[in-house]
């Protein structure tokens, strides 16, 4: 795969990755007899530009922790700061702005808009990031070239393989040059070969952009690629 430097993308991103500091984070769902205490005092630090693999059994709260760090939910109790910004104080448009500026998501289900082509998916993300219309197409094509899909720009997700869709999703996650990249089971729906390609791509792009990467996975082989690993058990983190 040919490697290219990403073209400049206004507004200029802050250099380096975002640091994450979590102290005594608790979270629960439901009420009464149906109440589920998912996180029970999580403490965790991720240094800026670091690469952490988060593992744990199903229902351990991995996805919840990822959602909280990514600003998809507001913390209920405890401290959660990203680059010193207290996420519990953000709501509404401020929380959307945080996601738009700071975070890039890669989902197990890829999360591409099915009615848009690969290029249009990227252009939509660039539009949300405030990139001028005139610059979007070139930037989208450059991103697709970066993930080796320059020939598939006009294809819709349904016309791409799982591995290709996840590469488009990675390109979209990086479109606005996030400082924190969160991947939720990024290889969960991929075969071995596609998984290896996607993981290599994630690691390379993280190294090039300097962003912080947190990968949630069941797969020990995927976790083993990260220099730092943490396991969620019974709502608490154990550092491996």
């Amino acid at each position: 795969m040919e490697r290219r430097a990403l073209p400049p993308c206004p507004p200029a991103p802050s250099p380096g990755g975002a640091s994450v500091r979590i102290r005594g984070l608790e979270h629960e769902y439901g009420s009464g007899a149906r109440r589920v205490h998912v996180l029970r005092g999580v403490d965790l630090d991720v240094e800026g530009g670091g690469h952490l693999a988060l593992t744990g059994r199903s229902g351990a709260g991995k996805s919840t922790l990822l959602a909280l760090v990514g600003g998809l939910e507001r913390p209920q109790q405890g401290e959660l700061r990203v680059d010193g910004e207290d996420l519990s104080l953000l709501r509404g448009d401020a929380l959307s702005g945080y996601r738009r500026r700071t975070v890039g998501f890669v989902f197990q289900h890829f999360g591409l808009v099915q009615v848009l082509t690969a290029r249009e998916n990227l252009e939509l993300a660039l539009s949300l990031a405030g990139v001028p219309r005139a610059a979007r197409a070139a930037r989208a094509d450059a991103l697709l070239a970066e993930v080796g899909l320059e020939g598939r720009a006009g294809h819709r997700p349904g016309e791409l393989s799982g591995g290709e869709q996840q590469r488009v999703a990675i390109a979209r996650a990086l479109a606005h040059r996030p400082r924190l990249l969160l991947a939720d089971e990024p290889t969960g729906n991929l075969d071995e070969e596609a998984s290896a390609m996607v993981l290599e791509l994630l690691e390379r792009l993280r190294a090039e952009s300097g962003c912080t990467l947190v990968v949630v996975t069941h797969n020990p082989a995927v976790a083993a690629r990260a220099p730092r690993r943490a396991r969620l058990d019974d709502g608490m983190v154990r550092i491996a």
Binding site: G70, L72, D93, S96, G97, R99, R100, V103, F105, F107, G111, L112, V113, L124, A125, L128, A129, R172, A173, H176
Partner: peptide
């Protein structure tokens, strides 16, 4: 997903 990537 749209909200995750910044849609209000």
């Amino acid at each position: 997903v749209l909200k995750a990537i910044g849609a209000r």
